[in-house]
Design a protein around this nucleic acid. Structure first.
Lengths: 246, 246
DNA sequence: TTTACGAAGGGTACTGAGTGCCATAGGATT
DNA sequence: AATCCTATGGCACTCAGTACCCTTCGTAAA
């Protein structure tokens, strides 16, 4: 009834709990804060906490569930283009979530660094992102006859690389206290992965037509002839095999 | 006093507990087994369990602590050669530990797959291996002026790749019920990583001397001149930059 | 207006992991 | 024999997480 007269009539209990929990975690530390402390500050019943958060750790990462859903939706929509570039873009969704609340993200980062239980919990969250990315790569390559028999292996390795690169850039930004451009760090890191594993899309890229090794001068000289349009990892494989038989 | 007359005089309590725990986990499942159940079967006091295992989950992975120490020692001894190849070899130590007890490893794998708490715990263990490998790469490259400014990023990405590749091969072997050659699967997986990221050691490898792009026919043709002796990832970077300016 | 109903929250009691503290036993040392 | 020292057992406690049931309140149907 007072819907339009009081804009902030009733903040959802989930947010109230998350804020109370986080404030207490910063004050006393995660482990010295009990769920009873949290619900006391939030002014709600203890049972309600576990209605909104399956565990105490979940209250520290209240937005990952939504972000994971966003990533899944993003990948479901993505159709064409280089799958590796697509999962790199998907990883940037996570960065964006962190960048939306820099102070919160930095404080949470410091908290997580110090509490082993939170580090472990974060690992399980990161793992879900990684599985989501790997699943997308596998699905894309499952219908691609040129993907090769080791597509599943590549999918897992690339997903792990993307996550590691993303987290490297993200942590670098978090360690700096949220100063500077978070996107630039992560872009640089992801570009390393995309350059190694991705097919080239907008740029011209190489498809190996022939690789041969010849001798020249005192150093061995390799001459590679390549044509554009194929995955970079395959170039590397061809270089390797050519070098092996040189 | 009966040291030499009774070879199996007194099995260490840690082993007794681990065996009792594992047997019960297989019978009733992990979550339906309490620590009281375990110590009852082992015939020891409840307090002793937590003396040997910090948590119930630790009883499922009784040998990872030793394996982690082995890996640390292995990496500390490793001096020359390609750091990437070295961490690949270090990863194989983990495989060897699994292969020492195939039945146990396979049963534990099935158990871990079904219990979320064990999956999460395993992630934290895997993370420690990953950090150990990444630390080695960073240390090796810290003294190498040719390593480049992004050595830390590469270290983390490569460590993640090595772990992902290793686990891909390992899981494939575990899913097969411990049949076949575990080493072959993992070797194949790790070779993919080493081919992409490693310097070549025994094989001749490429050091990029010059990269240029020319036109030929209707497809664009790239001619790369490379000399042996330098990291493969740098070859890729040069190819990328050459293609970008083509 | 009354009744029915379903969603949201509160309260209580319970299980079980993990910890701190102290007691005790058994072997080795002096 | 007195004394350590280490390994172990026993208890009591905290706290996360769960099962079950109760209350409340807004809404829709009668």
């Amino acid at each position: 009834m007072t819907e339009d007269r009081r804009p902030a009539k009733k903040p959802p209990m989930r947010d109230v709990l998350a804020e109370a929990a986080f404030a207490l975690f910063l004050e006393r530390g995660f482990e010295r804060t009990t769920v009873d402390d949290i619900v006391a500050r939030a002014g709600v019943g203890r049972r309600s906490f576990f209605r909104y958060f399956p565990s105490k750790e979940d209250a520290v990462f209240p937005d990952h569930e939504r972000c994971l859903a966003d990533m899944t939706a993003f990948l479901a929509d993505a159709e064409g283009g280089d799958p590796v570039a697509t999962v790199c873009d998907a990883a940037r969704l996570v960065l964006r979530m962190y960048a939306e609340n820099p102070e919160f993200s930095v404080q949470r980062y410091r908290l997580t660094r110090e509490v082993p239980g939170l580090r472990t919990y974060e690992l399980s969250v990161v793992r879900r992102y990684e599985r989501t990315l790997a699943g997308h790569l596998e699905r894309r390559w499952a219908e691609d006859p040129s993907a090769g028999p080791d597509a599943s292996l590549r999918a897992e390795v690339i997903a792990a690389s993307v996550v590691a690169a993303h987290n490297n850039g993200l942590r670098s930004w978090l360690r700096s206290g949220g100063e500077g451009d978070a996107g630039a760090e992560v872009d640089r890191a992801l570009e390393l992965v995309r350059a190694v594993w991705g097919e080239a899309d907008e740029r011209p890229a190489a498809q190996v037509g022939a690789v041969q090794a010849v001798s020249g001068g005192d150093d061995e000289v390799i001459v590679m002839v390549a044509r554009k349009g194929a995955p970079m990892w395959r170039v590397v494989q061809h270089i390797e095999s050519a070098l092996g038989s040189a």
